[in-house]
Design a protein around this nucleic acid. Sequence first.
DNA 1: CAACGACGCTCGAAA
DNA 2: AGCGTCGTTG
Length: 784
Amino acid sequence: MEDPTLDPLFADLTEPQAEAVRHTEGPLLIVAAAGSGKTRVITRRIAYLIGCGIVPWSVLALTFTNKAAGEMRERVLHLLGGADSRQARGLTVTTFHSLCSRLLRKYADCAGLKPDFTIYDTSEQTALCKKVIESLQLSTTNFQPRNVLGVISNAKNKLQGPEQFAATTYDFASKTIAKIYASYAKALRGANAVDFDDLLLLTAKGLRESAVFREECQRRWKYLLIDEYQDTNQAQFEIASLIAGEGEANDAGVKRGPNICVVGDPDQSIYGWRGADISNILDFEEHYAGAKVILLGENFRSTSSILAVADTLIKNNKKRKIKPLFTRKQGGDPVDAVLCRDERHEAHIVAQWLKARHLGDARSAGEPWREMAVFYRTNALSRVLEETLRSEAIPYTIARGTAFYDREEIKNALAYLKVVANPADDVSLSRIANVPTRGIGDTSVDKVEEWARLQSETLLEGMRNVSSIDGVTARSAASIQRFVAMLDSWTGNGTFLGSEISGSLADLVNRVLKESGLEAMYRHQAHTSKSEADEERLDNLAELVSSAREFELEYDPDSDPAAFPGVDLASAGVLSETPPLLAMLRAYLESVTLMADADTVDPAQGSVTLMTLHAAKGLEFGAVAMIGMEEGTLPHSRARESESELEEERRLCFVGITRAMRRLHVSAAKYRAIRGLSERTIPSRFLAEMPTEYMNIHDKGGGLESTTEWDEMDQSAPEDRPARKAASPMAAEFPVGCRVRHPQFGIGEIKSIMSGAQTRAEVQFRDVGRKTLILEYARLTKVN
DNA sequence: CAACGACGCTCGAAA
DNA sequence: AGCGTCGTTG
């Protein structure tokens, strides 16, 4: 029955793996333990589907990151016979967010949107939310945009619109948030913008409410595959179910349910905080009656020592579906566990360990730098590590792809482009109105904004009508009119950018940078301030132009999953009117906004990778070091109250451990500086939960007699801890007016005792231009 | 309207 | 320690 030409797809697969590949019809749940060859199974399965004669464009595979999608696509193409991609034409492998964005552009009117909407990132969301709170005459201290957005995001992830959310509120505060939510949603529509959560929410809503939207998707995609299913939220569940539909009866008239294949591991569910609903995977069999379930329990990645540590740890989770995790590999080096003095010491020890692994030893060959990684719970932990690695000349890269696009100069440039792409984008417009300064002050912008709000018009329309707005000086009005004229020169007269510019995106970016005066502004700054950072800004702008050029080279308008084969774009209305350059600009801005941190991890580079535990999911490295294994850091202090959050922290730790193939190093610091203050820590309970027989434990923290068990360490109750006692003793030693010496800043005088803080004082120094600094007592000595 | 400096708040992970 | 905001000054 099986086509012999497909045999290679089954080469070196275990029986459960092969079974998963072979199961093409009807719902399928693959519970894939860490390192169980999940990606291999998924890619072979897609190739097998196509090999069986299923049209590629009826296959939809969804992942969480662009990187995962890219790799999956690549591997499928490879299996189908190399670079010749014709066989896979129309195959959709993408992220949830990208898919939703494209679908919403195509079916914009089904979702109450215009197809040229902008996607707001976190900072734009915050800016808009703040404006909304202010316009409702509420205090942004009582209702902090950050917190309010968190509540709104949770609601959206649960598919609650403003009305549904309002129905769940009883107390005053949440009722007020419901009002903010309603206004915020309205403001987003007014700016022709959506936020990240809207991409999912509005797609789910559109699919549910519009039969056209839903049926076209169902008609196209007959085979659905979802990776990391344990991390899907309710909105994503809804989208998947609606696209999957009911399934069709086969030739024999037997109904099997839809061809939806989900892959995941409940033990690696680490996104509960952003609405991931683990019951999606746990209840899959209930949602899809007759679903086939395949367990992949054999680990092909790690040594048995590493696996034993991971397995013993995760067994401490009470709410857990027990599943086997085993390997045929035996032995392996023990896991190194080190207690360090403080974060600098820890960084040093990790650096030495990385160097030793790089060189290799009698038992094992050296690891190339790119095969090594350091994981941490919070981004703040990376700084000391970076400094140390730099001074030790260890090449490293931080997996924080968004960092580039977070820079002020880049955000300004992108804001200009966003306004070009979507003139209704008020948040971006108000950001750049006076950057560089062109005589449009906050007061004038406020006036125009107020007018626009009252008229339900966009800010740009307000600016056009500035002459009729009271309270704007003639001078400001003239500046605003010049500004509007500049914007019009880029977009205006129906011909997008006229005919002066070729269809090049990079040229467009360049032109906007020059004519807006942004480039000149940063060049001027670089000249006058001559600080390193300012010179870098110009380079970054140049880098932005290159990124646009790069995008342009790879851009393929046909790869849009919403550009359905056979669907005539001209008949789809608005899309046909869009000049190609504008379409490309929008696609570029979209890709920039939907870029994930993990997307920029480039293993081809010869450097150690630094990243958060969350970003590490789905990756593997020869040698892994995990730092900051302390109570309050991992598990994080904010997770302490709830048992379920604690279990999620444990899963996070499990994810980190199971990334390691050959060597693992875990460390804790006895003192760690948090917000600049050094604090005594307690080793993480997760260390105590690891089996010591697979570990090499070193106490390099000093002070304590060497102990071999983690749980014997730091038995001292918090009250007994040395240092940082009450303020009085130190404050008494260094009264106000007392003269002190600091090793770095020289002689100074105590100006004030920091209230609340017990370890710091404000000191004014003579030798440093009478600068006032806040310093720790510990580094001060008294002088007479 | 812009530049500068002091103050105060914050740090949890992300598309 | 780092950033944004507020208040003061030019």
